[in-house]
Structure formats: structure tokens, C-alpha cells
Design a protein around this nucleic acid. Sequence first.
DNA 1: TCAATCCGTATC
DNA 2: ATACGGATTGAC
Length: 689
Amino acid sequence: MLPVARICVDVPLPHLDRPFDYLVPTALDAAAVPGVRVKVRFAGQLADGFLLERVAESEHGGRLQFLDKVVSPEPVLRPEVAALAREVADRYAGTMSDVLRLAVPPRHAATEKRSPADSPSAPAADEGSPDEGSQGEGSPDEGSQGEAPSGEASPDVPSSAAAPSAGFPPAVPPVSEAGWRRYPAGVALLRALGDGRRPHAVWTALPGEDWPARLAEAAASTLAGGRGALIVVADARDLDRLDAAMAEALGGTGAHVALSAALGPAERYRRFLAAARGHVKVVIGTRAACFAPVADLGLVAVWDDGDDLHAEPRAPYPHARQVLLARAEQAGCGIIVGGFARTAEAQQLVEAGWAIEVAAGRDVVRRHMPQVVTVGEDDQMARDPGAVSARLPTAAWRAARDALLRDAPVLIQVPRRGYIPSVACAECHTPARCPNCSGPLALPSATAPPLCRWCGRVAAAYACPECRSRRLRASVVGARRTAEELARAFPDTPVRTSGRDGVLATVPGEASIVVSTPGAEPVAPGGYGAVLLLDTWALLTRADLRGTEEALRRWLTAAALCRHTGTVVVVADASLAVVQALVRFDPGWLAARELADRRELGFPPVVRMASLTGAPAAVADLLAAAKLPPGAEVLGPVPAADGQERMLVRTGRSGGRALTLALRSAAGLRSARKATDPVRVQVDPLDLL
DNA sequence: TCAATCCGTATC
DNA sequence: ATACGGATTGAC
């Protein structure tokens, strides 16, 4: 074979983030194929690496070392995944080695031996569903930028011209299309997948939609057309549901595997190998599965892309949606970005013309949605004779009572405690933003003037842009007690809770009260008779750019579990756009507004932002070394935890790639001259906004 | 004159 | 990072 092997060496230094060439000794010639793990001598030391490719000759002027050893004959890093890792590293100002650590699970030699590569007898099925997901609180976000089909390849809104043509293929539809008929573009989407085309879809699921079944059908259709599929969800509970639906749609076990971080090393590697060896063509999993070795991809999909858990908390902090967008672009395959809600990033894909909207018409939505009623937060508290509670609005109490009388379960969503205190107008509740840079304001103490969390300026003269009021209030969660009181109001009804300590997957379909924190809502067979959304003020005043988007996402996720004959009660000001979006079940409308707002304020995904955190001197040093693209705007510093500080760099979307490359080479310069105090670089993070 | 040490540089 | 080389310094 070709005498030179190009190796991605596992070294943490940014300036060494490129392939190095080695000679292949005769003894290793057969085993040294692209994708295998190797050991090489690097700067005198033995280092791990991946073999990227074999080439005829090296560009390197000096003498080449020999490959030390092929660790395992198993090609665990396909060329297309290597290319994806390279792309993700560039997008997030990180190194390929960092990304590969996320992408390829650690080798488990015993597992590799137990099921030799040449005997595909090993059952590829996943017995036992992926278990408890103990992924921590997701914190960083991601962002994107967008551009209609353009020359420059930007993974945020990939630049290819695509789009499913709604043709009528000769092929007989191999899988049930019934579930997708409610969406005008749904059937065309399935057929495009079956026909080997590359549809780009932003899918807004109908209330009550059995989304795992729909995604399983999309995968089945892709598989029937001879291509593989990859579906990523946010947490273990969603993965369990999808796993069951896949088993049904693909005819039992054996056709797919589920990958999650919660699996042990042996099982995780076993399932990974099943995919790498091509024993299965369909992979489902949580965020790390974005890099799963699925050959001949026809479809990638992400469900509920607004969930924070899709953001990887380890460097370089990639977001599953962005990784899959890049992957779809590189593989030339279809993609579905789905959810009950819609993120600004997904909206951007639609508005750029890169993706088509797969959403039901308004009349169909109305037919399938529960009634949604709003109650002002200070409104009529229940004075009904039967109501023990003095804090529960009458309408909420009535909706719950009616559902229970019909022997249906009632879901009560209450926010979890622990939101960052943020500041809003005391009169009209408009979130307070910095007059200088539009960052969120904070109140350092009860008496101090508001301070911008981005640029650090004191906004002493702040007045609300909506109502001119100068009074501010920090949001306070009054939470949970409301739910307890409600439970007391219905003494004979069983009460269950689902949340941080103890997440319920399902509850029985009979009369009961289920108190849940957002994201932990159990599914009830037949749906809930009523869903109460309480203490919404806490959600709406998060010190977070995505505050309203996140609030709607959480409400819709809960409301989607309500039967269409039931009632959803939201305790919030009906004049707020986010509340209107819930009342109409119209996340696309809110996402469009949200995206327009961000465009105006200069937030991701319309611009690219990088956050640099570290010791003040180190951050300044990195910034000084970075050749920022023209027009880049530097904000800060603002104090961060542990005496560190944080600077933000904002640039237009066309400067995004230049920004990340500049930061990476600046980090390279620093590491080359032994500047050891670390600076954390995050691109489009969610947490600070 | 030689060795111990300090920088600077490259790592296939 | 870590290893090497060439210059620098200090002591015999």
C-alpha cells in the first residue's frame, strides 16, 4: 500500500492541530488502514493518534519517523467523521483531537475480542434500552448564522442548494405515511428520504404528536431507500421513547442501536462497533452520537433542538444541531430539525431558504390542540368554597377539577428554583437591557445601580424603553408551594412529582395530580385532562437571551401532552407575545419575531460571538495576540467566577470563520510560547446571554 | 576549557 | 508539553 500514513496525533496544543506524516513499516502495512488507532513517536514521546489516510509521499521536508504500532485493526474513525471533526473544530475554535475525544468512545479491548470483526454474528441489537441519563445541566448554547445559498461554505446555514422537490416517485412507499399526512410537506419529505434525495426540513410537530413514531418512520423510509439514518435527542427519556418506536418501525431489534453516555464503557463500545462495522445502518442517541459511524447517510435528525442538553459541556462545546447541519452538508444527506417548539436557529434555516417548513396548517393545528386559557398572575385567586388554596387562580382550579371529575390526570408545571436573578421593569416586566450593548442588566445589590453583565458598564440612568419607568425589580420565584397547595385542594387525589430527584417516564391514565419541573413531564396514556403552567414569571425573566423562546418550548412540551379535549391554563400576561404563541400553538410565529429581535440587537444566530474567560491578564494576552477580523467588536470585561473575567467578541456572520480561526491561532501562539494560564474560548455560548 | 543552565524552536 | 541545540555563564 502507499508508504506514508497521515496521523492526527493526540496532543492538546492548538498549534499542533494538523496531520503529521509517518512511514509505515512493512509489518504494519496491512493493518495501517484509515481510521485505526495508532501509537507514534512524537517529539520523542509515544503518543496516541488516528490514521487519517495513506498517501504516496509526504510534503514534509525532513526525515519521517516510522509508525510505532497499530493499536487495534478496527477502523473506528471513518474519513467522513474525521472531516466532520475537522470542520467542528474550526467552527468552534477548538482542536480536532478535542472533538475526536467526543466522537470516538474509548476502546474496550475485551469487547472488541468477544465479537470479531469478520463474524457479523454478533447481534447488533440493543437489548435493554439506554438507561438513566445523568447528563449534567447543560449550560452552553450555540448559535448560528445564516446565509442563503452562497458560495462560502458556512455550516450554520449550509450553503448548498437543496430542498426536496415534491415529486411523485415511482417507488412504492415502503413505510406508513399516514402519520405524516397531516403535514402538507410531510409525505414529500418521507418520499424524498426513500428516494435518495436530500430534503432539509424544519419540522414543527402538532400538539399530541407521537414524535418518536414519526422519526422512526422517517428512518425506516430512509433505510428502505438503502441509506442509513442518525437521530439525536436530548436526554435518556426521549431516547427510550425513540428506541421503542424504532424497534416497532424497523421490525424488532437488530436494525438499530442506541448510543448514550449513560452506557458503560463495554456496552457503549459494543454498540459503537456494531455501527462502525456496518452491522446496523440506523443509530439513535444523545449528543455524542452526532459523530456516530453511520455509512452512507441518508438522514440526520435532531429532536427538540432548543434543549440545553444538546450543547456539549466539554471543549470545544459544539452543539448537536450545528454538528448535524455540518454533517448533512458534508454527507449530502437529508436533515430534520424537529420539535414542538422552534428555535431562532431553525427559523433562520427556513428564512434563508435552506430548509423547508414542515408544519401543519392552522386549521389542522386548531383541530388537534387543547383549549389554552390565560390567567393574569395577579388575577382572581380562587375564592371558591371548595378551594383550600388562596393562591390558585380560579380558572386553573376549575380546569383541574373538571379533568379530575372526568377521571383524567392533571399536569402541573412549576419552574425549578435556581434561576439567575435577572432584572426587569417593575411596571411592565420588560427585561432590562444595557443601553450600550444590549446585554442583560444585573443588580449587584439592593442599593447598587444596575450593571451590564456583558460590557460591565453601570447603567445608572436606566429607564425602561417601553414605559419609561425607572423602577426595576429582580425576579423572584414563588414556586412550588403553589403546587403543594393545589394538591391540598384535592385531598382524595393521588399526587406524584417528577423532577430533579426522580423523573417519571409515564403515569397512569386515571385521575391524579402530577407536579413536574420543565423537561421532566411524564407521558400519560390518552393525554392529560388539564395542564397548568404556573409561576411563569420565573421563566420569562431569566437572564437569558433565549428567555421567551425557552419559556415557549417548555410550555409547548407540557401542553403537547394534553388531550385535545382538555384545557391548558397558563398563568401569565395574555398580552405577551410568547403567551399568544402558546394560545395559538404557533411556535413559528414567535421564532420569526425572536429572530428579528436578535437581528436588531446583534445576537446570535445573526452574528457570531465568542466568549473568552480566564485570568484578566491571560484574556488580554489572547486578545492582543488575535488578529480579529475587521469590524469585530470587543465587549467587556465583566467579572466572572473565581476572580476571572470574561470578554466577548462579536462579529458579523461573514466574519465568523475568520473570528474562530483568529482565536485558534492566537491560542496556538500562546501555547507555543508556554503561556500556561488557560483561557476558555466558547463560540456562541448560550449561558451568558 | 568544560560543563551546567537558559532560551528558543520544532515536534512528521 | 517535552526534547534538543545552540548560546550564555560560571568556575577550574
